[in-house]
Design a binder for these strands. Sequence first.
DNA 1: TCAAGAAAATGACTGCCGGTCATTAATTAC
DNA 2: GTAATTAATGACCGGCAGTCATTTTCTTGA
Lengths: 223, 223
Amino acid sequence: MGITERKEREKESRKESIIDAAQKVFFEKGLLLSTMDEIAETAELAKGTLYLYYHSKEDLYLAVMMRGLMIMHSMFEEVIAQKFSVVKTMVELTKSYTAFFEQHRNYFRMLHFFNTPQFHKQVSEEMMQSCDDLNQSLWNMVVEIIKQGMIEKQFRTDLNPIEISLIMWSNATTLLMRIDTQHDMFIQKMNINLNDTLRVSNTLFLESIMTEPGKKELYASLN
Amino acid sequence: MGITERKEREKESRKESIIDAAQKVFFEKGLLLSTMDEIAETAELAKGTLYLYYHSKEDLYLAVMMRGLMIMHSMFEEVIAQKFSVVKTMVELTKSYTAFFEQHRNYFRMLHFFNTPQFHKQVSEEMMQSCDDLNQSLWNMVVEIIKQGMIEKQFRTDLNPIEISLIMWSNATTLLMRIDTQHDMFIQKMNINLNDTLRVSNTLFLESIMTEPGKKELYASLN
DNA sequence: TCAAGAAAATGACTGCCGGTCATTAATTAC
DNA sequence: GTAATTAATGACCGGCAGTCATTTTCTTGA
C-alpha cells in the first residue's frame, strides 16, 4: 500500500510550505520581530499546527537558514567542479562567498544569529545536528583545497590548514556583515568602500599564506 | 543652595547602583534570559523605578556594556602612554585586546549583541550616541597609530589606515568570540588551539602591512 | 513646626507572545 | 457505515517588557 508513502510526501510538502511562510516572515522582520502567529497566518494554518512540525520558533528559523547553507554549498561545489588550480579555486571560493552574500543577503543575515549564545538554548538536538553537519561539510571543502595547495607547494606548509580556513572565513564574514549594515555609513563618514576593504583583506591574507610560486599564480588568477 | 547638586549626585549614584544590579544579572544570564523584574529585585527597587532612569532593557544593557568599553579604553591608553615604537605599540595593542577578553570576558560577550541588527530598534537615541562616541574614540586611537607608522615608513603606505584598523579589529574579534564559545570543541575535535590561531592571524596580518624595516622591528617586538 | 506642593518610588495592570492541549475534523481500516 | 487513528485547531496559560494612577518621601516657606 502506497498510503504511508503518500502521507510521508504530504508531510514533507507541508513542512516545506511552513518553511516558505516562515522564510517570508523572517526575511521581512528578522528573528526577534517575527511572531509565530504571523507565520501561521502566512502559512494559512493554526499556530498549533506549526508545532506539530517544528519544535520551536528557533528550529523553524534554522530550517530556513539551512536552505541558505545548501545554496552556498552548491555554489562552492560548482567552483570546485571546475577543477581550477588550487590557487584559482581559493580565489573563486572567496568570490563565491561574496556572491552568496550579494545574491542571498537574507540568508546571509540569518547566519549571524547562529553565533549568538542564548539562541542555541531554544534549539532542538536534531536540528542542531543537521546544521552542524552541513556546516562541517562546507568547512571541509575549503580545508581540503588548502591541504591540496600545500601538497602542491603553492601554500606555505608551516601553517595549519584548518587554522587558515578559520581565519579566512572569519575575516570575510565579519567584513560582509559590516557591508550589510554599515556600507553607506562608511562611505559617507570615512570615505571607505567596504567592498574594497574586503578585497584588500582577502588579497593580503591569500598572499601571506602562499609560497612564491603560489603568489605568481595568485596575481594571474585575480581577474 | 547645594540641594540640587546633592540631588544630582544622588541621582547619579542611583543610576550606578541600578547598573550594578543589571550587570550582575546580565553577566549571569545574558540579555535574552535576564528580566527587568529580576534586575529590579537585585537592585532592591520596584520595576517602574528602573524606567525612571533607563528607557528600556536594551538601554540598560548598553549602560553596562559601556563600562566594559571604558575599561578597554583605559587599557589602550596605558599602552599608548608608554611611548613604544609604533610597531611595538601595535603589537601591545593586540595583546591588550586579548587581555581585555581574558580579564573581562563578561564585558567582551556583551559587545556581540551590539552587532545584532534588531537589537538597535529598542535603544534610545542618546544611549546609542554615547556608545558610538566611545567606540569612535577607541577606533581613532588605533587609526592614529597606523598613520604614524606610515609616516615613519614602518607600515606600507599604499594601504588605507582606516581599512587596516578595520581588518585587524574584525579579525581579532571574530576569533576571540570563537575562543569564548568553542575553545574546547576545537581542541577536542580538531586538535586546534584557537589562542595559537589568533596569534598566527595577528602575526600574518601585521607582517602583511609592514615594510621591511617594520618587519624587523616586529620580530624584535614579539620577543 | 507643619502644611502644601514637588519629586521619587511603587506595583498592579496591559498587551503581546511562545508554547500547550483538550477538542474537533478528516482520514483510514475493517 | 462505523470505529479507530491521525491531523488540525484555537482558546488558553505563564511570563515578560513597559505603563501609569497612586502612594511615599522630600522640600519649601511661612
